[in-house]
Design a protein around this nucleic acid. Structure first.
Length: 826
RNA sequence: GCCCUGAUGGCGGAAUCGGUAGACGCGUCGGACUUAAAAUCCGGUUGGAGUUAAAUCCAGUGCCAGUUCAAGUCUGGCUCAGGGCACCA
């Protein structure tokens, strides 16, 4: 065995062997229980960054640990490879998005292999390849047939410069991320997925996700935004065309305090509700609201504006007549697009009423300070006044009673409302999965027949066009025939949001090569749900919510039998440098290639796990990397300089000598501690500190020996070989190389995980802690077999304790067996 | 404004049930080896008082109260930081 540690050499050697032997191939059939470990797959942006390294190392260690513990582990990898950067790169360099993407995948694959990750590469999925997006399109068609995919006119983020819709993530401070042009609202006919049908079950099933952090679950719950309230219908008194206006409210108890009613500028009946005299002002206001950019909307936040429509409504509860206004603080997309305004008990209505001098009427009284609501709205609980038969009722009770009156009177009902909106999946972009639909002049919207899938991305496109999607420049793509009548038809040129592709990739890994179906039902049911999912918190809502929706929808389609995709979720923290997020603009990035080259992958793996628990942010430091590299050198020297005295037989030896017994105990303590730390929330930082403790203990033990007899050699073998096995999920190459140098058979990664003996996993004697009034005063080494009474006497007889308690009265003595004695004195 | 998460030495962090606060590492200081350096090895390192050195004592886990024989850990009230949502009626 070489006396020095040359990571670059041994890492290359083992990576080659593992690849040739397909060492990490996962069979579908096995008599072992299954375990599915998954990292969120990357976008092939060009190079791995440290966030990837952290993510994949965490999952890899979990996968290897589970494998050594007797599981048949599925640990796959793939590419979320559709998306804007490829298309932008193509436009900029005149290249093709496909070429750009393929090159990036090739480079990043090489990097992943250099990290020594245990992927089953035979299951690799790439979302931009036809053998994958064929099934994305197929799934879209199934959703369409079920009524879960539909087309409607909607307000979207529009960049005039690029001539295309942008995703919300692509709007930065109200501007287009690419050309810096101001983004505006535009009304376009777009494809949506009906995620709102699943709002209730998506919310309710969060309770089932006991393996998810509360932070993620709360974010999803807030996003879904369930609220309980009522719909009231207000008759319009002076408009022939519109009979009534429905309003959603969570405060039915304040209904007697309405003094006006607001509709959104985009409200569907607004033109009909506007009188001739008010037409000009309303039109002007609406045009202005339409033109308003994100920036202006943000900057005018809370300064409310509006104009009256000139028409009026009647309050069915009071008979009062009040005016109708339009104001942009009413949102067209939420509730009914109309709001009943109660200035006295709603802050927004209060601001608006103050500004336009609208009347106010108090209907809820603050029990402690009967407020007249002159300076602010009273929004807390109280007792109803000015509310006819409901006077004196507590407002919490009145909510139900008042809604019930509306139900009985036929002008309202109970209503549960969600904030969640349907998912807009259309993109006016080339580099995405084409939406498999055609438009026929006679037959209208027609889905592409399944046997014609995939709808391939065309090659004859001009990427230099400005103001429209490059895909529209392909004649061969756009012009087609109707699958029903055979007549002339136009193909849908919108492609799907990449989040659609990533909403089902984890299912495809169970049956990645299937060319008849997206996945076979028995395989997907066998492997799923994912036992451990690992990824960044930035996906807390989007990807994780969409995937949950897909799983539930696909279950309802009969394609699978489970209703949640990810049993346990670990959201890893960010990788920081000098306290701030690594970014190119700050110039504080660390290139993984340089780390591999200078220190090797094992050092990188060890370091990225060492300093912080996985869920917390991790501050990268060059000194820390250096420290880990030194530690691996120290481990290497320990093995190499004693190799002739070490054999790979790892059963616990019999020790006659005290110091040998002590070392054996320390090894068992390490096995127990490390196993528990991994099992309990993957606390790899403490796992690594335990590696170091064990190495320190072995060196201490060696330093006291001038020569080694047979017993010593077997104890040393046990300690060092156990160390290698415990380290093998993390330092994958070093452990494998040392294992083989010591004469180990097969791969160390196929060995059984170490077991500990509970009787040996503790010190041979215990330290009794003696406190006086809860403060530490003495420590005494005692035999663990002592009874409580004996412990008490030992403590009281300690010379030090005797001295300290000499002039005091002992009130009470508390004995915690095998641990401590607390003497309470006065 | 609302919601979530967090706060422990110079730094990252450790501390199953309430039971020795600061494991392990980084940094730093001192020593050994060396002509010298690197590498390596050994030792100190929460603050303060004390001593030639020690012993020893006091304070200490963001702040203020409380429960308890005993609180980093439990309860109530704050402060600050990070993240998310934000006119959702």
């Amino acid at each position: 065995m070489k006396s020095s540690y040359f990571p670059q050499e041994i890492e290359k050697k083992w990576q080659k062997i593992w690849e040739e032997e397909k060492a990490f191939k996962t069979p579908d059939e096995s008599d072992k229980p299954k375990y599915y470990a998954l990292s969120m797959f990357p976008y092939p942006s060009g190079k791995l960054h440290m966030g990837h390294v952290r993510n994949y190392t965490i999952t890899d260690v979990i996968a290897r640990f589970k494998k050594m513990n007797g599981y048949n582990v599925l640990h796959p990898m793939g590419w979320d490879s559709f998306g804007l950067p490829a298309e932008n790169a193509a436009m900029k360099h005149g290249a093709n998005p496909e070429t750009w993407t393929d090159e990036n995948i090739a480079y990043m694959t090489k990097q992943l292999k250099m990290l020594g990750l245990s992927y089953d590469w035979d299951r690799e999925v790439t979302t931009c390849k036809p053998d994958y997006y064929k099934w994305t399109q197929w799934l879209f068609l199934q959703l369409y047939k079920k009524g879960l995919a539909y087309k409607k006119e909607a307000a979207v983020n529009w960049c005039e410069e690029c001539g295309t819709v942008l995703a919300n993530e692509q709007v930065i401070d109200g501007k287009c991320w690419r050309c810096d042009h101001v983004v505006e609202k535009k009304y376009l006919s777009q494809w949506f997925l009906k995620i709102t049908d699943y709002a209730e079950v998506l919310l309710k099933d969060l309770d089932k996700l006991t393996g998810w952090g509360d932070n993620v679950k709360t974010m999803q719950a807030n996003w879904i935004g369930k609220s309980e309230g009522a719909i009231f219908r207000f008759p319009v008194v002076d408009c022939d065309e519109v009979k009534e206006i429905p309003v959603y409210t969570t405060r039915p108890d304040t209904v007697h305090g309405i003094t006006y009613l607001v509709v959104a500028p985009e409200y569907k009946d607004i033109e009909k509700l506007t009188t001739f005299e008010n037409k000009e002002a309303v039109e002007k206001y609406r045009a202005n609201a339409r033109k308003m950019t994100e920036i202006e909307r943000l900057s005018t936040e809370r300064i409310k504006t509006g104009v009256p429509l000139g028409t009026h409504c009647k309050n069915p509860f009071t008979g009062e007549i009040f005016p109708l206004w339009t104001a942009d603080y009413a949102l067209a997309e939420y509730g009914t697009g109309a709001v009943m305004a109660v200035p006295t008990h709603d802050e927004r209505d209060f601001d608006f009423a103050k500004k336009y001098n609208l009347p106010m009427k108090v209907v809820i009284q603050n029990p402690e300070n009967p407020s007249n609501c002159e300076n602010e709205a009273y929004v807390d609980e109280g007792v109803l006044i000015n509310s006819n038969e409901f006077n004196g009722m507590k407002n919490t009770e009145a909510k139900k009673a008042i809604t019930q009156k509306a139900v009985d009177g036929g002008f309202g009902e109970f209503k549960t409302q969600y904030r969640l909106r349907d998912w807009l999946v259309s993109r006016q972009r080339y580099w995405g999965a084409p939406i498999p639909v055609v438009y026929c002049e006679k037959c209208g919207i027609q889905p592409v027949p399944e046997e014609q899938l995939p709808v391939l991305l065309p090659k004859d496109v001009d990427f230099s066009v400005v103001g429209k999607s490059p895909i529209t420049t392909s004649k061969t793509f756009v012009e087609t025939t109707c699958p029903v009548c055979g007549g002339k038809a136009r193909r849908e040129t919108d492609t799907m949001d990449t989040f659609v592709c990533s909403s089902w990739y984890y299912l495809r890994y169970s049956d990645a090569k299937n060319d008849k179906m997206p996945f076979a039902k028995d395989k997907v049911n066998h492997w799923l749900p994912v036992d451990q999912y690992v990824g960044g918190i930035e996906h807390a809502i989007l990807h994780l919510l969409y995937s949950r929706f897909f799983t539930k929808a696909l279950k309802d389609l009969g394609l699978l039998d489970f209703d949640e995709p990810f049993k346990n979720l670990l959201t890893q923290g960010m990788v920081l440098k000098d306290g701030s997020k690594m970014s190119k603009s700050k110039g504080n990035t660390v290139d993984p290639d340089e780390i591999f080259e200078n220190y090797g992958a094992d050092t990188a793996r060890l370091f990225i796990l060492s300093d912080s628990p996985p869920s917390r942010d991790f501050d990268w430091s060059d000194a820390g990397v250096e420290g880990c590299y030194k530690f691996l050198n120290r481990v290497w020297r320990l093995i190499a300089s004693n190799a002739e005295n070490i054999s790979v037989n790892v059963s616990t030896p019999k020790a006659l000598k005290k110091e040998n017994d002590d070392l054996i105990r320390l090894v068992h303590i390490a096995i127990k501690g490390i196993t528990n730390d991994i099992s309990n929330d993957f606390q790899f930082n403490t796992v690594i500190s335990k590696y170091r403790e064990l190495v320190n203990s072995i060196y201490d033990w060696l330093n006291k020996k001038s020569s080694l007899d047979d017993e010593d050699k077997s104890v040393l073998s046990f300690a060092t070989v156990t160390l290698l096995k415990l380290m093998s999920p993390v330092t994958v190459h070093l452990s494998e190389e040392a294992w083989h140098e010591l004469g180990g058979e097969g791969s160390i990664h196929s060995q059984k995980w170490c077991e500990w003996d509970e009787n040996l996993a503790k010190a041979s004697s215990i330290t009794l802690v003696v406190q006086i009034n809860g403060k530490l005063k003495d420590k005494i080494d005692v035999d663990e077999s002592l009874s409580e009474e004996e412990l008490k006497q030992t403590a009281l007889n300690s010379p030090k304790i005797k001295e300290l308690t000499a002039d005091k009265t002992i009130v009470k003595v508390i004995v915690v067996p095998k641990k401590l004695v607390n003497i309470v004195v006065k």
